[in-house]
Computed example of a mutant assay.
Amino acid sequence: MWWLMFFSALSSATLLPGSSEVLIVSLAVREPEMAPALLVSATLGNTIGGYITFFMGWGAVVLGRRYTGWLPSEKEQARAMPWLKRYGWWSLLLSWTPVIGDALCLLAGAAKLPIIQSGLAMLVGKALRYAVLLYVAGFLGG
């Protein structure tokens, strides 16, 4: 079950569509004792997915090409760039957010932000999102 959660969270953090939030709560409803394992699995999968997107941005710059399929829309870029310029890798605490999260990861890679700090910011932001979701749903801390 946690593998399903891992791969759903991983795909949700890349440019592929996904809805890991719905899955984590659904699986926790089915087996509440698995909530901590689901939290870890979702966080790791989502962080690895964020890293994949980060390195897609990094690779697009390294290869000197602009892969239009990898780039966020101009609207997403317009929303994400001010965060990156102002807060640098700290902005990746918001990598879990809809609309700008994938753009932040991709543009952070293209901007060659520090890999370790960027990954830690993604990890913390994504873990907090899932932890709050499970807490509000009554599966953690209660």
Rank of each mutant, 00 (worst) to 15 (best):
L84M: 06
K85H: 14
K85L: 13
K85S: 13
R86Q: 11
R86P: 01
R86T: 12
G88N: 05
G88R: 09
G88M: 05
G88H: 08
G88E: 05
G88D: 05
W89Q: 08
W89I: 01
W89F: 14
W90A: 13
W90E: 00
W90L: 15
S91C: 06
S91H: 03
L92I: 13
L92H: 08
L93S: 00
S95Y: 09
W96E: 00
T97M: 15
P98Q: 04
P98E: 04
V99R: 03
V99W: 09
V99M: 14
I100D: 01
G101V: 09
G101P: 11
D102W: 11
D102K: 14
D102T: 11
A103K: 03
A103S: 10
A103G: 07
L104N: 07
L106T: 07
L106W: 07
L106Y: 12
L107Q: 13
L107N: 03
L107G: 00
A108W: 11
A108G: 13
G109H: 11
G109Q: 07
A110W: 15
A110C: 02
A110M: 13
A110Y: 15
A111P: 05
A111Y: 15
K112S: 11
K112T: 09
K112D: 10
P114A: 09
P114C: 02
I115H: 11
I115C: 01
I115Y: 05
I115V: 15
I115R: 14
I116Y: 05
I116M: 11
S118H: 08
G119A: 14
L120F: 06
L120I: 13
L120H: 02
L120S: 04
A121T: 04
A121N: 05
A121L: 08
M122C: 13
L123Y: 13
L123I: 08
L123K: 10
V124M: 12
V124L: 15
G125M: 04
G125C: 08
G125Y: 00
K126N: 00
K126L: 07
A127N: 02
A127M: 10
A127P: 05
A127K: 05
A127E: 00
A127S: 12
L128A: 10
